[in-house]
Design a protein around this nucleic acid. Structure first.
Lengths: 355, 355
DNA sequence: CTGAAAGCGCTAACAT
DNA sequence: ATGTTAGCGCTTTCAG
């Protein structure tokens, strides 16, 4: 119950506090016999090092701040899980800050975390422009890695999915299935993922299907927008609706069903991210899965690299390729020429849950 | 860029460090003029208090640990969001620990958090029995509030939804809709929510519909189990399937659709928790919504109470009532006597998204 | 390899 | 209302 300190362990084991510290922190070599006595004393007293005191002296808290826009965004929980797992494995603790999608709140959370002497920061910026100043200022004080979204060039190290590769996978899959009349339902948001996915769609679609139409509608990353978008685009009868994320795809699917459209018979629908709900809809949503575990591991690696002494060197930008997840929403169309339905260009995994 | 300390602020403002400390921490009254000078000096130097040093001296880190079984459980993100919001409002930071549903990992995360001198702990225990020892030990060292799930009696303060009230709302709703042949699809898990929901179902069902059948099937809290359960119970043709949470209900709905059953015409389906996906299915799932914001606020209030000096007094157990969310999955049955379809006993909110 | 001493930056008694 | 003096518990020079 009482707070056991190093001093008491030293007294019991009959050596000095410095020796005890060295044994327990493993900072320097200590005699085998002394070491044994110290460990035993610590054990018998139930000694637990006070990390706050240790941090004050050693100037390292073993803590990283994780700042994200909204934990309720269904893509983030799995990312948070992998990040905490990776960081805990390195004996680091995670201070979590949710900004409610507000760059002002984000700036104040970051300032708070810096005051708490985090060793490093992991930031998923809320807004590509408006998050920039606070992020850049923080990056000057501690190692900082941007995750999932960017924040302008040269601000900090960053790790994200390769949005272009993901879009390419989806569009190749759709074209190889004979689809030609594309439509993109994206987000006009100011975060970098939204911008990248929209831009990539346009250029890749032009490349893969030169003569094909490639209409673009921009709203936000929500189910409601997916529903609304269908009402605007369905009259033009696209045969493939490419959505900027899975939530939009869920809305698109809902509305198409209400309108009596057959998915995938009349129109294919694809998402992005592979959030859990993507395989729960009927039909399941064809999407690209972000390599969440690897994103987390890579972020941890970049932090380690900076913490290990690499000073303020050049920023690294890491892009990881996602994997195509083929589900029923992009299955065979019903009214196509046989010649169009060539073999797919990429390896596919069929969803088991919708046989 | 350089680390500005209290001493430098004191030098610039021409007074002692203690005075500066008192001004900035607001611990004691300070002369208006001095106070102004200090603030200005701090401002001009860009002084940021070092919370680690402050914590070491004042024996309070302003940090609470949040320990949960799995952030990927779709019910937790919104809870985490509300908790961080409530705690940040009190200038507390949140150290997050995910245990991957493993009580051993949980115990080690708790020990780590205690070493980091958290002022208090918020714990959603992974297992009612196997989490108990570590939780009880932690509760002896810092204020600890259990959330969502219990951990045996008398261990710590706890806040959770009133599972009995929720079940009652659902069963009243179903009986008032004329349903009589109930079936419960629950979880045999060792956490307290699973046990409570199953037990409550049995007793409330007997109470509300004395002659009615009330079959119980136990598996786990997953979509897959929901699907499997349907294959076991559908042959007996229940007219209402009550699920222990929304994930199970999603699975039940999927499988019923595959079997060609009409929901709600042939059979009603209900969930529990109101996770986001509950309103995205077709039909939307009738469920009870946990009062997440209030759960979080109440947990914060209990912590404050203990931190404000209330010693190890008697444990408080707070139960909050959930709200019935009526959606299409419990709409009118097609083959009932008119007499059975009386007016509902409780106020209902019809889901707008499935008109 | 080990001990003694000096703080990390701040707050809390005790003085005044 | 302010200054002075001690540390919080630990790590880290610096001696030996």
């Amino acid at each position: 119950m009482a707070e056991v300190t190093l001093r008491e362990v030293a007294l019991l084991s009959g050596c000095s506090v410095s020796t005890v510290s060295r044994v327990l922190a493993g900072t320097r070599p200590v005699g085998a016999e002394t070491s044994r006595r110290v460990r035993q004393a610590a054990e018998s007293l139930g000694y637990v090092p006070n990390q706050v005191a240790r941090a004050l002296r050693s100037r390292s808290t073993g803590t990283v701040g994780l700042v994200l826009p909204q934990i309720t965004n269904p893509f983030y929980p799995s990312l948070v899980r992998e990040l905490t797992r990776a960081l805990h494995a390195d004996d680091r603790a995670v201070l979590l800050a949710d900004c409610d999608d507000d760059p002002v709140e984000e700036a104040s959370r970051i300032a708070d975390l810096l005051g708490r002497q985090v060793d490093a920061l992991l930031v998923i910026p809320a807004d590509e422009q408006r998050s920039r100043e606070a992020v850049a200022a923080a990056a000057r004080r501690v190692p900082l890695v941007l995750l999932d979204r960017g924040c302008g060039p040269g601000v900090a190290d960053s790790v994200a999915v390769d949005n272009m590769a993901g879009m390419s996978l989806l569009l190749e899959h759709l074209t190889s299935g004979g689809r030609r009349r594309f439509c993109f339902v994206g987000a006009a948001g100011t975060d970098s993922a939204a911008a990248e996915r929209a831009a990539t769609y346009t250029s890749v679609a032009a490349l893969l299907a030169p003569g094909a139409s490639a209409r673009v509608e921009l709203g936000d990353f929500s189910v409601a927008w997916g529903r609304a978008a269908v009402d605007r685009i369905w009259p033009s009868r696209p045969d493939a609706i490419v959505c900027a994320n899975d939530l939009i795809a869920v809305g698109v699917l809902q509305r198409l069903r209400e309108l009596g459209a057959d998915v995938p018979g009349d129109v294919a629908v694809t998402g992005f991210d592979d959030i859990p709900v993507a395989e729960l809809t009927a039909p399941g949503i064809t999407t690209v899965r972000q390599p969440v575990g690897e994103l987390a591991a890579e972020a941890a690696r970049l932090l380690d690299h900076r913490l290990a002494g690499a000073g303020p060197g050049a920023c690294r930008t890491v892009r990881l390729a996602p994997a195509l997840m083929v589900r029923a929403s992009s299955g065979p169309a019903t009214h196509l020429d046989a010649a169009d339905t060539a073999a797919p260009l990429v390896a596919q995994r069929t969803a088991e849950e919708h046989p």
